[in-house]
Design a protein around this nucleic acid. Structure first.
Length: 688
DNA sequence: GACACATCAGTTGG
DNA sequence: CCCAACTGATGTGT
């Protein structure tokens, strides 16, 4: 959060850093929404936030149609609806997104109405709890007959009118697509868990993306995929399908068939090395990859020799053709309870050797040695470094302090400077929580539930779920399902245990942080661990001030947190979740995100959050959280990841337009002192 | 607990 | 239409 005026580092110095944190990686724009929004007042049940259209973004000219690369030919057979006519560039020609979730709330007739395919007689008994992808597909196919525009569909196309296209800004399109997928996935999981069918929300979200033509880069290409950067991480195989990095949902080898390649032989385009075979992946610039097949996990299938067909044949063709092959490596997700994997895009490689070998099973396999193309940014090698540091913190180069928190945090906070001669930040006391300067109003008793062991989604007796609008705010994996105006975690008066899923932020920081010297923005914060979208990052700790009594001097302090009203990017984080709602006027509307009087100063005392810099395209959002008192004007300010954040990526949030007097949102910025913004993102507002 | 293993429900494209 | 594919979540046993 430190801001250093006019001390730009010489460019020459920047090339030699052993670690290139790739600032653009995290600072790329997410949504082309103008810095404003409007709360829709018409059709309230169907849409909530509408981008202001008077200032169309650069992508507006291309309208809302699917990205040009998409479906250049006939639509895939699986969704064989006729392609939209020239005038109907609306991407959501298929089933309304809500249709995938019929009978969620049987009371609402809208769901049935919307869901039932026109060609099918509506059956009131469609409330079968099982919502399969097949159902969705049927609905999608038949909507071709259904020309009537339903409100929900209109709202969807409105929502997505500003949707970035790959031709406009590929990075933006990838980030928006990833954000949409994970928002759909988190909300789907949250709703499914309530009904006890919380399985494969990733696949369900993928089907929704497919139905609504939201997948991008679906034309297979050799070499880099537009908008996907080296080092990008994925928590599901299907995420890589959706952005066009790797098309097969399970198979490790993606290839162009001879026909698609326009050649007489197929060519491999992408491989995933994720531990299923006996690959050699210790080196960061070479990889010995095993061909596919013969390795079935199923008991009823016996193992056999690999055959020179499909992916193996394509890899062998590529061995002589020497074309670029994208490589995705994998690692264990350190925070997954269920041995989940993280997939890391590591750039392009070429095959330099291939041979046949005998696997441990005794059957013959194909082997391919690939070498990474030189000159590419760091990808998987960053993981190797952070693994080493986590195993032994003393191996961190240029570390000035091994634990800035002096033991206050569960995990030490490293302080490093690889940029200049600064010895460290000015003195402050490290504290992990907030201190209030005046007593909080205690006019209400602390909320609490009677759950005996842990709170379970769908339990109508859990008063904490009720307090949160009926949903437990976190999924089983501990990620925030939706951004909400106020989140209520279980309190000390709750009867549930400390490992209840509704106690996440109160448990404190679980990441290996480092405070590091940026090139031009003072100190910054990043993590040695990967952080998935929705994961808790840290609280903004410090002294809680009373806004009304604050002087202008204090307001200008660079170590001050104040809320802005509201953070439109954070509100947009729920986009996918909102599209799932059959009714949602009372859900995440911008109107409900009010500016809060809470102001926190971390000047004299604070935690890692005081080092988080501003960005106009941030990777964190703040979420108001309550659990230890009842004064909703002064909640805890908790940061959560807005997207998947690879290790060593700077963490940022949107400070908002600072200094604007309360109640005047985004107006008269000249009336207050603004600082120039150096975030470097395409949507940079220039100051904050 | 951490892990290995089995099973089950799924998508995708050849 | 069928099937294989380096899935992912859950359950069982060590």
């Amino acid at each position: 959060m430190e801001f250093t005026m006019g001390s730009l580092i010489d460019e020459a110095e920047t090339g030699e850093q052993p670690l290139d944190p790739k600032p653009l990686h995290s600072l790329a724009p997410m949504f082309p929404t103008p810095p404003g929004y409007d709360v829709a007042i018409s059709d309230p049940p169907f849409f909530y936030i509408t981008p202001i259209q008077q200032h169309p973004g650069p992508g507006a000219a291309s309208f809302a149609g699917p990205p040009p690369q998409q479906h250049p030919g006939p639509a895939p057979a699986s969704s064989a609806g006729p392609s939209p006519g020239p005038g109907s560039a609306v991407p959501l020609k298929a089933t309304p997104i809500s249709a995938a979730f019929p009978a969620r709330r049987p009371k609402e007739e809208l769901s049935d109405e919307d869901y039932t395919p026109a060609s099918e007689k509506r059956k009131p008994s469609s409330s079968s709890p099982k919502r399969t992808a097949k159902k969705v597909r049927q609905a999608g196919d038949s909507t071709a007959v259904n020309t009537k525009q339903r409100p929900i569909r209109r709202s969807l196309s409105k929502e997505l009118a500003g949707w970035p296209s790959t031709s406009d800004n590929p990075r933006e399109a990838v980030e928006a697509t990833m954000a949409m997928f994970d928002s759909l996935r988190r909300r789907t999981l949250q709703l499914d868990e309530k009904e006890g069918l919380g399985r494969r929300a990733d696949l369900k979200a993928s089907v929704l993306m497919n139905q609504n033509n939201l997948k991008i880069n679906s034309l297979k290409t050799i070499g880099p995929v537009p908008g996907v950067e080296i080092g990008d991480i994925f928590f599901y195989r299907i995420e890589m399908c959706i952005v066009g990095l790797h098309a097969p949902s399970m198979a490790g080898i993606d290839y162009l068939s001879a026909k698609l390649a326009g050649r007489d032989e197929s060519l491999a385009v992408s491989i995933i090395s994720s531990g299923g075979y006996e690959n050699v992946e210790d080196e960061t610039d070479t990889l010995v990859y095993t061909g596919q097949g013969g390795n079935s996990r199923r008991k009823d299938k016996e193992k056999h020799d690999q055959k020179l067909e499909k992916g193996n044949l394509a890899l062998s063709n590529s061995a002589s053709k020497k074309n670029q092959i994208r490589v995705v490596r994998s690692a264990r997700d350190p925070f997954s309870i269920t041995a989940g994997k993280v997939y890391i895009y590591d750039g392009v490689y070429r095959i330099e050797d291939s041979w046949m070998d005998t696997a441990k099973s005794g059957f013959s396999v194909f082997k391919y040695r690939l070498r990474r193309e030189p000159g590419q940014p760091d990808g998987f090698s960053v993981w190797k470094m952070t693994d080493k540091w986590k195993a032994n913190r003393a191996t961190r180069e240029n570390a000035m302090v091994l634990d800035l928190s002096s033991g206050a945090e569960i995990l030490p906070v490293c302080l490093v400077n690889e940029v200049d001669g600064e010895r460290g930040p000015s003195h402050f006391k490290y504290v992990t929580g907030v201190k209030h300067s005046r007593p909080l109003s205690r006019n209400r008793p602390l909320h609490h539930c009677e759950c005996t062991s842990v709170c379970m989604p769908g339990d109508p007796n859990c008063s904490c779920a009720r307090q949160n609008g009926g949903d437990l705010p976190y999924n089983l994996d501990g990620v925030l399902a939706r951004h909400v105006p106020m989140l209520y975690e279980c309190s000390r008066d709750c009867h549930c245990t400390k490992d209840c899923r509704n106690r996440v932020a109160q448990r404190g920081v679980q990441l290996n942080f480092e405070v590091f010297r940026t090139r031009d923005r003072g100190w910054g914060l990043r993590s040695w661990d990967p952080i998935r979208a929705g994961a808790f990052v840290c609280e903004y700790a410090g002294q809680v001030m009373d806004e009304t009594n604050m002087s202008m001097d204090v307001q200008e302090d660079e170590y001050t947190f104040r809320t802005t009203c509201p953070n439109d990017k954070a509100v947009r984080w729920n986009l996918g979740a909102e599209l799932l709602e059959e009714k949602g006027a009372d859900d995440a509307t911008a109107e409900r995100f009010k500016r809060l009087p809470v102001v926190i100063s971390a000047k004299d005392a604070g935690n890692v959050a005081r080092f988080i810099n501003h960005s106009c395209s941030p990777n964190l959002l703040w979420q108001a959280v309550q659990y230890d008192h009842t004064d909703n004007s002064y909640p805890h300010i908790m940061f959560f990841a807005m997207k998947h954040i690879p290790p060593m990526t700077e963490l940022t949030y949107d400070y908002g337009i600072r200094g604007a007097p309360p109640g005047i949102k985004g107006k008269s910025p000249l009336a207050c002192k603004l600082r120039p913004c150096l975030c470097g993102s395409a949507n940079c507002r220039g100051s904050f």
